[in-house]
Nucleic acid binder design. Structure first.
Length: 473
RNA sequence: GGCGCGGUAGCCAAGUGGUAAGGCCGAGCUCUGCAAAAGCUCUAUGCGCCGGUUCAAUUCCGGCCCGCGCCUCCA
């Protein structure tokens, strides 16, 4: 079953290229534009990364784990990272390290597989300079008076194909009309040209490298082109990112790479749509910008966040709300309960997949339709749930279930909530359990009220109890 | 102004030219000292509004209203 994926360039559903199984050198090359490491990523960023992670998992299942090479960059030098370092009086590398580590921790919590390679912009200055050099020699770039190098948009006939903008003219009423134009407007031959190399400015501090055009630093777009060429080749199978990267970032990458290499840059372009929170674009001023930590602090599990991010079709804006997080948490509980039942029934038995959940995979193959996949998942668990299922069938269903849960990246083995239980609460719970065993129900009920008032929920079972924190909203 | 997307039950959200998946919430039930958990059942004669095409439209076409995104460094 081929993976069909919307392609931003042709604006149509296209199958992904299948690498030759007989040729060990033929890998599916997959590049995902990564984060700028200057602050914690927010859940909007993570929508893109989680969607890309499902895609990565699906490709692995489809072509085999060894048949895909997944690269995601880290932008560790740009205006924002430099500004942050300057404000904090720290070296750029220290800022980048801090937020790279945080990004990795968040990705791990969200159960995203690590890319096979995470190259950095500062680690590829040489490659970027080399590429700019070729563009200069071919006449696609020019050096301005201040030592910056710009790409000459008019030298590339196909410019604008991806974002469908033939020429970026500043329209009356456009977002730019009122503002002063870019700071480097005077240096550029044309307003649409963009920087390949930025001449050193005092604000850049020590963050500058030597180049044939003087000291400076690379422009934003060139890093991806250079790292892709080095690590994945001149033509890659799949290039992805958030919808905002369509223009100018990816448009510019195409221009640079195709002018430099003379071949098609990417066979397939995939952009996931943005996340809205409570129906609006996230912004600090609206107070609806969440990081993973913000949501964990509210009592939600990272896995519920992942589930919530998969509740909408990646090609459609998703309205993220705290209510959907509650829904996600509950849905996960039911899936966990379903799996526990299968595990119990299966005992030590193992079996080949029953293919019970194949329609979940089918939904994912159809343009990564995650909401449809989740719908099928629940439908299948409901229809086939049975306490009296034969062990051999339970084992087969379990294999099938775990396969699709791998594809979705939903890890049910981690507890829903991990919170430290205060000793005082444990003490109350112990007392109540003792009272209950002694059939002193009046005392037991009073203690339950105390525990609830303290923000905890005590769940009785036949052989004991568990404590869960009440949700905060 | 340019390019694009969407309006489906209280909330989130799939989907189809032939009469509306799924999740959450809610209600009822089973179980249970209590409370939960878990399980079962139920919950849109309706898919923004108005026309058109059609035997048949939520699904196609046109118009309108509303919301949203991008437009030089925001995933």
């Amino acid at each position: 079953m081929a993976i069909q994926l919307f392609d931003s360039l042709s604006r149509s559903l296209q199958p992904l290229r299948t690498p030759d199984p007989a040729d060990p050198q033929d890998l599916f090359t997959f590049y995902n534009c990564g984060p700028t490491v200057y602050a914690p990523a927010h859940i909007g960023n993570f929508r893109t990364f989680v969607v890309n992670d499902v895609l990565r998992r699906l490709i692995e299942l489809e072509f085999g784990p060894g048949k895909v090479k997944h690269v995601r960059n880290l932008t560790d030098v740009d205006d924002k990272t430099i500004r942050r370092a300057r404000e904090e009086g720290r070296p750029l590398a220290a800022v980048a390290k801090q937020w790279t580590d945080k990004f990795h921790a968040d990705c791990d919590a969200l159960n995203c597989l690590r890319p096979h390679l995470e190259p950095t912009a500062t680690g590829h200055i040489r490659e970027q300079v080399d590429m700019i050099d070729v563009l200069m020699q071919k006449g696609n770039a020019y050096r301005a008076a201040d030592g910056s190098v710009y790409f000459k948009v008019s030298s590339f006939d196909n410019y604008g194909r991806l974002s469908r903008v033939k020429e970026r003219e500043l329209q009356p009423g456009s977002a730019l009309a009122g503002k002063s134009q870019a700071a480097d407007a005077d240096e550029k031959e044309d307003a649409t040209d963009f920087a390949l190399w930025k001449a050193h400015k005092p604000d850049d501090g020590e963050n500058a490298w030597d180049s044939p055009w003087g000291r400076g630093r690379p422009g934003w777009h060139i890093e991806c082109s250079a790292m892709i060429k080095k690590h994945l080749g001149e033509t890659i199978d799949l290039h992805t990112g958030g919808e905002d990267l369509l223009f100018p970032h990816h448009e510019n990458e195409i221009a640079q790479s195709e002018c430099c290499n003379g071949v098609t840059f990417a066979r397939h372009w995939y952009h996931s749509k943005h996340l809205l929170v409570d129906g609006a674009k996230m912004s600090k001023s609206l107070g609806n910008l969440y990081t993973l930590d913000d949501l964990v602090a509210k009592g939600f599990s990272p896995m519920a966040v992942r589930y919530a991010l998969l509740m909408g079709h990646p090609q459609k804006q998703l309205n993220f709300t705290l209510d959907s997080l509650h829904a996600a948490e509950s849905a996960l509980k039911h899936l966990r309960s379903y799996r526990d039942t299968l595990v119990q029934r299966a005992g030590n038995m193992t079996a080949k997949s029953s293919r019970l959940f194949d329609d979940v995979l089918a939904a994912l193959h159809d343009d990564l339709n995650t909401p449809w996949a989740l719908g099928e998942l629940h439908e299948d668990t409901r229809v086939h749930k049975s306490d009296s299922i034969a062990p051999i069938h339970a084992a087969a269903d379990l294999t099938s279930f775990d396969l699709v849960m791998f594809a979705l990246g939903l890890d049910l083995r981690t507890p829903a909530l991990k919170a430290d239980i205060p000793p005082a609460i444990t003490a109350l719970a112990e007392k109540r359990w003792a009272a209950k065993q002694a059939k002193d129900f009046a005392t037991a009920d009073a203690l339950r009220k105390e525990i609830t008032a303290a923000g905890w929920s005590m769940l009785d079972r036949k052989d004991g109890y568990s404590l869960e924190p009440l949700k905060k909203t």
